[in-house]
């Protein structure tokens, strides 16, 4: 016993050192398995507060850019609205078209499947190998883990940690997540990030016979957690992989990750029901 105590006293520093290093490695390892720990992330109360204070100051410098992006988004939404509605809101005169009762019977009325909540970006990074964005809304505003986050121009990421008033979002610029995507012609593939340049995304698993031109758009499809038909980016260049005769497309992301100000957190109202159904189906097939 005495020898044991002497041993501990002699090597106390080494033991402490090894203990702390093991703690660190356990923490890293736990974070990498996507469950994550919510305490040591920028969603915790203290660092969230510091980032909020910083953002309150820096916010004003970005107002001009933000106005521009909001204006562009308004224009886009107005355009979309115009295709549904025959009232042109830009022109004063009304161009009404009466909808007869006969028409409503033929159309299936779809209820909105997604709820969008606006949130402000209070911290943002584009320079590490897994980039995170901190938002000023948390579970108190109805934000939950694994909700999709989109900006006015394209996709942003997925909510990973949530506290009462903050949420941290794993951005698409990360090696940890792949997004299921499609080309305009309907071919499916995956979009991922290779970790080098924040201005280039990669789309893989596109069959070689599909003709892709420079400038073609890539959208989310309905398999992923993102709402379908949201722009991901446009094709810069293509490359044929010799090994499996698939193409790789290099995309320019439509979201400007360096200048994010406002984003929308999309809640899929049908997600719970869909998952319950899929789980029960997979249990039965076993």
């Amino acid at each position: 016993m005495r020898n044991f105590i002497l041993f501990i006293r002699r090597f106390f520093n080494l033991i402490l050192f090894l203990g702390l290093e093991v703690t660190c490695i356990v923490m890293i390892q736990r974070t990498n398995t996507l469950q994550g720990n919510d305490i040591i992330s920028s969603a915790n109360a203290v660092s969230g507060l510091v980032y909020k204070k910083q953002n309150d100051v820096v916010y004003y410098f970005g107002l001009r850019k933000m106005n521009d992006s909001l204006q562009r988004e308004n224009a886009r939404l107005r355009e979309m609205l115009a295709s549904y509605k025959s009232v042109d809101t830009l022109v004063d005169t009304l161009a009404l078209k009466k909808v007869g009762i006969a028409d409503t019977a033929k159309h299936i009325i779809r209820y909105a499947q997604y709820i969008y909540r606006a949130a402000r970006v209070i911290n943002n990074s584009t320079n590490s190998s897994d980039n995170y964005i901190t938002l000023n809304r948390g579970s108190a505003s109805g934000i939950r883990k694994n909700m999709a986050v989109v900006s006015g121009t394209g996709i942003v990421g997925r909510v990973e940690h949530v506290s009462a008033n903050f949420a941290s979002v794993l951005s698409v610029l990360s090696s940890k997540q792949k997004v299921s995507a499609k080309l305009r012609v309907g071919t499916n593939g995956f979009v991922l990030w290779e970790g080098k340049n924040a201005r280039v995304l990669t789309m893989v698993d596109v069959p070689q016979q599909v003709k892709v031109k420079r400038g073609d758009s890539v959208f989310t499809n309905s398999y992923s957690l993102f709402p379908p038909d949201i722009l991901i980016g446009t094709v810069i260049s293509t490359e044929v992989v010799k090994k499996n005769t698939m193409q790789r497309l290099y995309l320019k992301p439509s979201t400007d990750f360096a200048n994010l100000q406002y984003v929308y957190v999309a809640e899929n109202k049908m997600a719970v029901e869909q998952r319950a159904l899929e789980d029960s189906a997979s249990v039965k097939s076993k």
Binding site: L20, E21, T23, C24, I25, V26, M27, I28, R30, T31, G36, N37, I39, I40, S41, S42, N44, V46, S47, V50, Y51, S125, S128, D130, Y132, H161, S168
Partner: peptide, 13 residues
């Protein structure tokens, strides 16, 4: 520093 940059443990290590 980790808690600010979402890197749980890397800076600490």
């Amino acid at each position: 520093v980790d808690s600010f940059t979402n890197t749980a443990g890397m800076h600490a290590c």
